[in-house]
Each structure stands twice: as structure tokens, then as C-alpha cells.
């Protein structure tokens, strides 16, 4: 299968184009995604390619009304269409929570399996650069709290590609969150019509024996940096990329912890009640006898995201914060 170097953003776009081409039921809707080509340029060129050159209504610019267009996508999905809904930022999906939680997540259950909602809601989630308090939320933990949704947070261009294709083909509503800090990272990507990454499979991105660093999305890269720094001190850290929050692959996480006997969970969301707390709780509950130290947690500061770059950087966990947590483990 062909392999090429792609940015996370280009990998996403390539997957999106392949799925639109593969299945006439797939269409994209969202704010400024068409003529404006998307605020983060994931849909760059697609309006021209489909709507203009092929005269095919596949890329649909919407008014700025998240509840309304999310609801329209849900209704369309109930008839078997496969909408990909872009949230300009995941923070705006808060407006559509009623549609996502009260409607999309409940439809298969409330209909007794008569209907499915094959829909993807994707967009940038987490802090970008000085977007301040209303545009910087990490909401994946809110969504992963809700049965009926699937929630994924890929960290690499390969997973952006293969998990996105998987998401489009899934018959259930999928929340697909992309940390804005990831769009420009590059990596080797194996492509092909059926290069899919099934959900519910964590991956070990770096093997180690002394300590497990467990993370998802951009925090995986912070953990990889920490592992490099620890290696210089002769400490061997394993990095586990959770990548799928719901369903969650606890087994891969536990296997790592059983090997290293120490774990730190790292997440950008507010530390208190964030999804990292769920992972830490499970490790404590199920691997208690394997642990040589309490499970560590590094999360975002429990404050609204400030505008000042100095204060913003204070909020987002970095390698120094994780190193401090490693020292604390002893």
C-alpha cells in the first residue's frame, strides 16, 4: 500500500475526499466550510471540486446555527445518509448539546434499533493560540460520558486518516476531535481504500519498562518529549496513545501498567473531572496490586482559558509539568 508524508490536516482531507468519492451518501456540512474553505482549511478546495466542477451538492455551507444544522444532519442520517458535520471549533458544539446528547446519542436506543445515526461530528478541540475562554474547550470527556456516542481523539497523521475513514463508515454518531496544535504535524501515512483503524484499540507509541505515560491527542506528543528527556536520565518510559475514549481499550493500558508498575495520565482538559480522571480511576481500581506508586495525573489548570499567551501556556500541560509529576512518583 502506498505511503507518503502528510500533515495531519492533509491526511484528514485525503480521507474525507476518499470517503465522499466512495459513497454517494456522504456529505459535509458546517460553517464556512465551502466557499471559504474552512477556518482550519480541512475542507480546502472541496467546494470547487464537488459543488462547482461536478455540480454535486456535497459540501454545504450552513448558517451559524449549530443546533439547527446538527439536527438537520441527524434527521438526514436517520434515513441512511452519512453526514460529516464540521464544528468550527468543538467549543461551539456546546450549542448543539441538546441535538447531540438528547437526540443523536439516544436514537438507536429509543427506537429499539429501528434507526441508526451514521454521522461524524468533527472539528478542532482544545486550545489553539490565544483564542481565550470561549474557543478553547476540550470537550471529549463530556462526550465520552454519554452512552450512544463514540469518541475518538487521534494524535498522528496516520490515525487522522485511518480513524476518520472508520468514523465515516461507522453506523453510530462519532465525535472526532482534532487538537488544533496537531494540524501541521507531519508523519508517514499509509493510504488506501480500506486502511481503517477500528475504534477501541490503544497503541503503544514507545516501549519502556519503568513508567507508563498514558495520553491522547496532542498530549501524546508531550509525553513522547518527556520520554526522550527521561531516557537521557536512564529512565525508560512507555507512551500509550489511548486514541479512542469511547470505546476505551483498557487492556492495552493495563498491560503497560502491569509491566512498568507506574502510571501518569496526561490530558489537556480541566484536571478535575476530565477524562484522564476516568482512566486514572480505572487503573487504580483494576491494577492496584501492580502499582508501586499512586497513579499520577497531569491535567489543564481548573480555570477558564485566559487570553494572555503567558497565562495560556500556564494552563496547558507541558513537558515540565509531566516531568514534575514523574519526580513526585519517586
Amino acid at each position: 500500500m502506498p505511503t507518503q508524508e502528510l500533515s495531519y490536516r492533509d491526511a484528514l482531507r485525503m480521507a474525507l475526499v476518499e470517503e465522499i468519492d466512495r459513497d454517494q451518501n456522504v456529505f459535509v456540512m458546517g460553517e464556512d466550510i465551502g466557499r471559504y474553505q474552512g477556518t482550519f482549511r480541512v475542507t480546502e478546495g472541496l467546494f470547487q471540486k464537488y459543488n462547482v466542477e461536478q455540480n454535486d451538492w456535497r459540501i454545504i455551507d450552513t448558517p451559524i446555527v449549530e443546533p439547527g444544522f446538527t439536527g438537520i444532519a441527524i434527521g438526514a442520517a436517520m434515513t441512511g445518509l452519512r453526514p460529516v458535520v464540521e464544528m468550527m471549533t468543538m467549543s461551539f458544539s456546546i450549542l448543539a448539546l441538546d441535538q447531540i446528547i438528547n437526540h443523536a446519542a439516544k436514537i438507536h436506543y429509543m427506537t429499539g434499533g429501528q434507526s441508526t445515526v451514521p454521522m461524524v461530528i468533527r472539528g478542532p478541540g482544545g486550545a489553539a493560540k490565544q483564542l481565550s475562554a470561549q474557543h478553547s474547550h476540550s470537550l471529549e470527556g463530556w462526550y465520552a460520558h454519554c452512552p450512544g456516542l463514540k469518541v475518538v481523539a487521534p494524535a498522528t497523521p496516520q490515525d487522522a486518516y485511518s480513524m476518520f475513514k472508520q468514523a465515516v463508515r461507522d453506523d453510530n454518531p462519532v465525535i472526532f476531535t482534532e487538537n488544533p496544535g496537531l494540524y501541521t504535524i507531519k508523519g508517514e501515512v499509509t493510504t488506501g481504500p480500506d486502511v481503517l483503524q477500528p475504534f477501541g484499540k490503544a497503541q503503544v507509541l514507545r516501549e519502556g519498562k519503568d513508567l507508563s505515560l498514558v495520553a491522547y491527542s496532542r498530549m501524546v506528543h508531550v509525553c513522547l518529549e518527556v520520554a526522550d528527556r527521561l531516557a537521557e536520565e536512564g529512565i525508560s518510559a512507555e507512551v500509550v496513545d489511548v486514541r479512542s475514549l469511547l470505546p476505551l481499550d483498557t487492556e492495552t493500558i493495563y498491560q503497560s501498567v502491569r509491566k512498568t508498575n507506574r502510571a501518569i495520565v496526561v490530558y489537556e482538559d480541566w484536571k478535575s473531572g476530565g477524562f484522564g480522571a476516568e482512566i486514572a480511576s480505572r487503573i487504580s481500581e483494576d491494577c492496584f496490586d501492580d502499582l508501586d506508586a499512586p497513579v499520577g495525573r497531569v491535567g489543564g489548570l481548573n480555570v477558564p482559558m485566559p487570553y494572555s499567551r503567558v497565562l495560556e501556556l500556564e494552563c496547558i500541560p507541558n513537558a515540565d509539568d509531566v516531568m514534575a509529576a514523574v519526580r513526585k512518583l519517586g
Binding site: 443546533p67 446538527t70 439536527g71 438537520i72 441527524i74 434527521g75 438526514a76 436517520m78 441512511g80 441535538q99
Partner: peptide, 17 residues
């Protein structure tokens, strides 16, 4: 009121197809 966009979505699907 929550189902009203779903109603529009059903009609959207008919138009799309």
C-alpha cells in the same frame, strides 16, 4: 422544539436523493 430540525433533515434527505 428539539425535533423540528430533524423534520427539516428528513426533507433534506429527500431533496439530497
Amino acid at each position: 422544539g428539539g425535533h423540528t430540525p430533524l423534520g427539516a433533515g428528513l426533507a433534506f434527505a429527500a431533496k439530497y436523493r
